[in-house]
Amino acid sequence: MELDVKTLDGDTAGSITVSEEIFGLDPRADLMHRVVRWQLAKRQAGTHKTKTRSEVTATGKKFVRQKGSGGARHGDRKAPQFRGGGKAFGPVVRDHAIDLPKKVRALGLKHALSAKVKASNIVVVDDAKSTDGKTKALRERLAKLGYANALIIDGAEIDNNFRLAARNIPNVDVLPVQGINVYDILRRETLVLTKAAVSALEERFK
């Protein structure tokens, strides 16, 4: 499969051959959905916590006699039905992560890349660099190319000036190739890959 290569100034810079097994699959929404669920569940903090009746601060004394009061039987005021009592079946600190095989994760990434190719929302550029590190200049360059909502994937190392220039542009994310993931690919309209990123992905899925 051939993909055109451009520069960030909009000029043509030749073409590149990519693997059909990575960029030419018939996208499966179910696989991508499983990977996105796995990602979001894994990053959920799970630090929510309420105090149970054994953890609240109150006296443990039985405050009303067992019989003869005309009311219900009670022990102490830590019971959930009383103000200041413990929470019944409240949330506890836990890990929300779910298991997903590595092969499914890798396949989900391939299908996400293929989905961008099929929708013609993938762009290959020769490199992603900025000479001055100015946000305004980079924003104008991306606006001319129509990359208002984009994920830019570079090689193993991101150009520092480009990273500084892009970090304050709304709806534009920049990641090294080792950080590429299904969720970020799908949440942005355009996927911009550098030639270094394409080579790294080809090597990764060999």
Rank of each mutant, 00 (worst) to 15 (best):
D127W: 02
H74Y: 15
S120V: 02
V18H: 03
E20N: 08
T12G: 03
T190I: 15
A119R: 03
K136W: 00
A165M: 12
A72P: 06
L107S: 10
A165N: 09
V117Q: 03
R187G: 02
E140G: 06
V174I: 15
H48F: 07
A29K: 15
G70K: 06
Q44F: 10
R204C: 02
A148W: 02
T52R: 13
R105N: 01
I180C: 04
D99C: 06
A119W: 05
T50D: 06
T7E: 05
V182F: 10
A112Y: 11
R167C: 12
E140S: 07
G85K: 13
D173V: 06
W38V: 00
Q81N: 09
W38N: 14
P101K: 10
K87C: 07
D95Q: 09
I158Q: 11
I158K: 14
K49C: 09
D127E: 06
A45M: 10
E203N: 10
K61E: 13
S69K: 11
T7P: 00
G90H: 06
V64C: 04
I122G: 11
T17F: 04
V123N: 07
K51P: 07
R28M: 09
L164I: 12
D173G: 02
R141Q: 15
N161R: 14
L201N: 01
L40G: 01
I16N: 04
V198F: 06
D76Y: 13
F23G: 05
D11F: 06
D95C: 04
G60V: 05
V172P: 12
K118M: 08
G146R: 06
I169K: 13
T7Q: 01
R43A: 11
Q81T: 11
M1N: 12
R77G: 00
T59E: 13
R141V: 04
T7H: 00
H96G: 04
G179P: 03
H111L: 02
A150C: 02
V18S: 04
R77L: 14
A45S: 12
D132T: 15
L31G: 11
D127V: 01
V93S: 03
K103E: 15
S120L: 03
I152H: 03
D127L: 05
D9P: 00
L100V: 13
V92K: 15
E203R: 10
L193S: 03
L138K: 07
K110C: 07
D173R: 08
T50P: 01
I122P: 04
K6I: 08
D9A: 08
A79T: 09
A137S: 15
K78Y: 08
I153A: 10
A148H: 13
V93K: 04
A115S: 15
E140M: 13
R28Y: 08
V198M: 09
